[in-house]
Design a protein around this nucleic acid. Structure first.
Lengths: 240, 240
DNA sequence: TCACATTTGTCCGTATGTATC
DNA sequence: AGATACATACGGACAAATGTG
């Protein structure tokens, strides 16, 4: 007798855990399962799909790594629908960087172009909340620099906030990912407070032009700024 | 008495399979394991790490989904170091789209800006091989359209080839990812051969300006082209 | 073509860790 | 503090896939 399985999966010999993962994914994409919903426990899923627990585990692992669910341990725990794709994407970009698939030079070029292209949309779409966050970011960076705390994380945050103000998820994802790489890189550099102060004041200048809705001047300042940062990154004073 | 565990694992309580995954990842990032190298079999890895085979499997699953290894079944199979991050990233963007994290409107805006920004670099960096691929792509698209085969895959490929010609991995990754979403979207549209022919002729015009190194005109044509495509995508004649 | 060895895929039973109530 | 419910992890077993002689 011909196995039914062959009839139902005509081309590819997908692994069982992949099929289960796809089924759950589809439910999520169709909106039947929504973020915040809890999935049944591993044992229960295994019972319902009529497969072993190990198979369910690998399916859940796949969904977890893809950023669609998180898994809580302990009583009343279990798989939870939660969208963490943004994080997952940043981590993957970081992997790509460490695999030498991406170089710092490529990031320098790409971020210059992409952040410049973003500016139009930032000037158009930024609301009061965005401006407030950007202002607070600069204050925080200044405070840290004054206290001899390396403000590079604040300075990276500034660019993430810019992307957020564009209200475009693609820009947000790409900038977050590039900044994850730059942050990783800068974390290995000796802090240079002189340079940091310059960076902060450049950020301030850019923000002021955005508030004035002067896209042209904001673009010029951003361009100068990113070129400066790039030169600083090329300076080979790595700590390790 | 204060638990030693807290002292020695300060932040995260990582799961065993995650630790194993990180160890293997580190070997790859350090270049000790290179693409093409084979990892020991699951049983062998379990023996070396002194853990169960299931734990190793979940660690390998993690690496597989992260795009660092592939896994072959059968004799002389096993885990193989292979960089498939580009694919993985595209798939994640597709997930983000289906999770409604990204909308078609956002893609339309972002691709217009990013592809325009790419043009300078394409004109500067494209070599003969790139130009040849782009020419062949247009020929192929024409051939398919003439044979009443929907050439949307060729037309998507055109933009991927443009990104490739920029010689910047970030552009390549971002464009490939956006095109994965657009391709998924178009695959559900009824073929419109009239529109396809227009698309192909617009591609041809853009390519000619790139060859002539006329960035300005290429930019104008690209802008018009993407606006046209966007309008067509907004047209709600979905097949399903 | 066939048999064989190797390796992944899947399942079961059991034990332990962990978070909640 | 104890009971409960869940994920995590281990070991053993067999099935399925795949390359080799």
């Amino acid at each position: 007798m011909i196995s039914q399985k062959v009839l139902f999966s005509p081309i590819k010999n997908k692994r069982t855990f992949e099929e289960i993962s796809v089924k759950i994914k589809t439910l999520i994409f169709k909106g039947i399962l929504r973020p915040g919903d809890k999935l049944p426990s591993e044992t229960e899923l295994a019972r319902q799909f009529k497969v072993g627990r190990q198979t369910v585990r690998e399916a859940l692992r796949l969904l977890e790594i893809s950023g669609l669910i998180t898994i809580q341990r302990g009583s009343s725990g279990g798989p939870l629908i939660e969208n963490t794709i943004l994080n997952t994407l940043s981590n993957l970009f970081l992997d790509a960087f460490q695999m030498r698939t991406i170089t710092t030079e490529e990031i320098a070029v790409a971020r210059l172009e992409i952040e410049k292209a973003m500016l139009n949309h930032i000037v158009k779409n930024a609301d009061q909340s965005d401006i407030r966050s950007l202002r607070e970011n600069i204050l925080q960076a200044k405070k840290n620099a004054a206290a001899n705390i390396n403000p590079y994380l604040d300075n990276i945050q500034f660019h993430k906030l810019l992307a957020k103000a564009s209200k475009n998820q693609i820009f947000i994802i790409v900038v977050e990912s590039m900044m994850a790489i730059i942050g990783d890189f800068l974390s290995r550099l000796k802090p240079k407070f002189e340079h940091s102060r310059k960076v902060i004041s450049e950020h301030e200048g850019i923000l002021n032009e955005i508030i004035k809705k002067n896209t042209r001047k904001a673009t010029r300042l951003l361009e100068e700024h990113i070129v400066n940062v790039r030169e600083n990154m090329l300076d080979p004073s790595r700590t390790h």
